[in-house]
Design a binder for these strands. Sequence first.
DNA 1: GAAAATAGTTATACTTTTGTAACCATTTTT
DNA 2: AAAAATGGTTACAAAAGTATAACTATTTTC
Lengths: 158, 158
Amino acid sequence: MKENNRISIDTVIENLISIHPLLKKSFSKAIRSKTNLNPGSLHVLGILNNHKVLSMSEIGCSLSMPKSHITGLVDKLIAENMVERLYDPKDRRIVNVHITEKGIADFNDMKQEISQDLRRKLEKLDADTLHVFSESSQHVKDILESIVQEQTEISITT
Amino acid sequence: MKENNRISIDTVIENLISIHPLLKKSFSKAIRSKTNLNPGSLHVLGILNNHKVLSMSEIGCSLSMPKSHITGLVDKLIAENMVERLYDPKDRRIVNVHITEKGIADFNDMKQEISQDLRRKLEKLDADTLHVFSESSQHVKDILESIVQEQTEISITT
DNA sequence: GAAAATAGTTATACTTTTGTAACCATTTTT
DNA sequence: AAAAATGGTTACAAAAGTATAACTATTTTC
């Protein structure tokens, strides 16, 4: 039983290492050509689309980026009116970034644009394969989120 | 039925867009800190580990990078004796890059290093979840490979 | 055999990402 | 109230990724 687990872990790692460049290939180029945001800002917008409000530090932890980098990325999003800075009245050091209605709408539009090529390819799959893909990707997303998200507690100081 | 497909496609795209930054977070930092290769060279080594031999153009297509960039990445791998250039006797314009024994061994070592943190987290999962993760990630990898790999035919001219 | 196409390299400029360190404002600790 | 800790910002340097264009060497095409 313990042995089974080790094999499963190895399989998962092999698969994730293979999936990584495939996703990079599928999205990175489209992000550049079809949006006026850089990938970093788009990722920030993405997690704000999920959480709606996060402090600068929380964003940094979620994306494993130093806070100093987040500042610039958020500035870009503010320039596009996609997010807003809100100073926390309870602790005025904290900057809570929250996504605007425009930000939510723009993010959905950009998702459409970015995934156009992928969508066309998915449309060619047969219903069964598509169903398996849908279920499997949901599992991978959920489990990965649950184990990677732990790191949010770790503080990045710089 | 057609409606079901559309929903599945949307689900897949949503999930992949969420998985992308999670994998980036899990691997990118580890690649920098635990190897002396840049991520680009590692990805090249990764696909050579799968295919064993590829021409410069094929590598470029597989990773959606211009050939001019591949040259530098392969140069680094050659400097580490992980791959070799072989001039095709049938068509002397073509450079076939093939992975060496050292390259295969190094790649496996680096995979270990890079995935250490992830492995520790996976070890905390219960056997059932791990099993689901293993199966699901295999499906995602296989399907994604089958649909993304098509692009290998598209030639990148620059 | 000349012209066009192909495979790869070199060079250059630019953007993005990453890593530090110093710094300010606010809050917490003592 | 002074010292330490925390949350963010600013500034700077280095590494990596991206996009082009010009170029050489071969092969194909006509």
